[in-house]
Amino acid sequence: MQIFVKTLTGKTITLEVEPSDTIENVKAKIQDKEGIPPDQQRLIFAGKQLEDGRTLSDYNIQKESTSHLVLR
């Protein structure tokens, strides 16, 4: 499924993911596309910070959901 990640600069990154993917996996995909190390990434969805060990389905992130990327 596709999800979108919006950066603070207003850029939207499109990612191909599975509901069973962990947040860690998603951060690795963002690193592949954008070159941002996962330890600098914070992903926010529905006002919550997403934890590495959880999956997209844990957070009820469905296709075409948009989460926000904040850099630390």
Rank of each mutant, 00 (worst) to 15 (best):
M1Q: 04
M1G: 03
M1S: 03
M1N: 03
M1D: 02
Q2F: 13
Q2T: 14
Q2P: 06
I3M: 05
I3P: 00
I3V: 06
F4I: 11
F4T: 08
F4W: 08
F4C: 06
V5D: 01
V5T: 01
V5Y: 03
V5W: 02
V5M: 03
V5I: 14
V5Q: 00
K6F: 09
K6A: 07
K6T: 13
T7M: 15
L8T: 13
T9E: 11
T9P: 04
T9Q: 11
G10C: 08
G10W: 04
G10E: 04
K11I: 09
K11A: 08
K11R: 11
K11M: 09
K11D: 07
T12G: 04
T12A: 04
T12H: 07
I13A: 01
I13L: 09
I13N: 01
I13E: 01
I13F: 09
I13Q: 01
I13G: 01
T14L: 10
T14Q: 10
T14N: 06
T14M: 13
T14P: 06
L15V: 07
L15M: 04
L15P: 00
L15D: 00
E16I: 14
E16V: 13
E16C: 12
V17Y: 02
V17I: 05
E18Y: 14
E18R: 14
E18P: 03
P19E: 08
P19L: 09
S20G: 11
S20K: 08
S20Y: 11
D21F: 07
T22Q: 04
T22N: 04
T22I: 04
I23Q: 01
E24N: 07
E24Y: 14
E24R: 14
E24Q: 12
N25T: 14
N25M: 15
N25W: 09
N25A: 14
V26H: 00
K27E: 00
K27Q: 02
K27C: 02
K27M: 07
K27F: 03
A28L: 14
A28Q: 13
A28F: 11
A28S: 11
K29G: 03
K29A: 06
K29W: 05
K29N: 03
K29V: 04
I30T: 01
I30C: 01
Q31W: 15
Q31G: 06
Q31L: 08
Q31A: 14
Q31H: 14
D32I: 13
D32E: 14
D32L: 14
K33M: 11
K33H: 09
E34I: 15
E34D: 06
E34R: 04
E34G: 04
E34C: 14
E34W: 15
G35H: 07
I36Q: 02
I36R: 02
P37I: 05
P37E: 07
P37G: 04
P37L: 07
P37Y: 05
P38R: 13
P38M: 15
P38I: 15
P38V: 15
P38W: 11
P38S: 13
P38G: 07
D39T: 09
Q40R: 11
Q40F: 08
Q41F: 14
Q41M: 13
Q41Y: 14
Q41K: 01
R42L: 15
R42W: 11
R42H: 12
L43E: 01
L43Q: 00
L43H: 00
I44Q: 07
I44R: 05
F45M: 06
F45K: 03
F45C: 04
A46E: 15
A46C: 10
G47W: 04
G47R: 03
G47P: 01
G47D: 06
K48G: 05
K48E: 13
L50I: 04
L50K: 00
E51M: 10
D52M: 05
D52Q: 04
G53H: 15
G53S: 11
R54Q: 08
R54P: 03
R54S: 07
T55E: 03
T55R: 10
T55G: 02
L56A: 01
L56Q: 00
L56H: 01
L56W: 03
S57V: 07
S57I: 08
S57H: 09
S57Y: 09
S57F: 09
D58I: 03
D58E: 10
Y59T: 02
Y59S: 03
N60C: 07
N60M: 06
I61H: 02
I61P: 02
I61S: 01
I61F: 07
Q62C: 10
Q62L: 11
K63M: 11
E64V: 07
E64W: 13
E64R: 04
E64N: 14
S65Q: 09
T66R: 08
T66I: 13
S67M: 15
S67L: 15
S67F: 15
S67I: 15
S67T: 15
H68M: 13
H68F: 15
H68L: 15
H68E: 10
H68T: 13
H68P: 08
L69G: 02
L69Q: 02
L69D: 01
L69A: 02
L69K: 02
L69Y: 02
V70Y: 14
V70M: 11
V70S: 07
L71D: 05
L71Y: 07
L71N: 05
L71H: 06
L71W: 06
R72N: 11
R72L: 15
R72W: 15
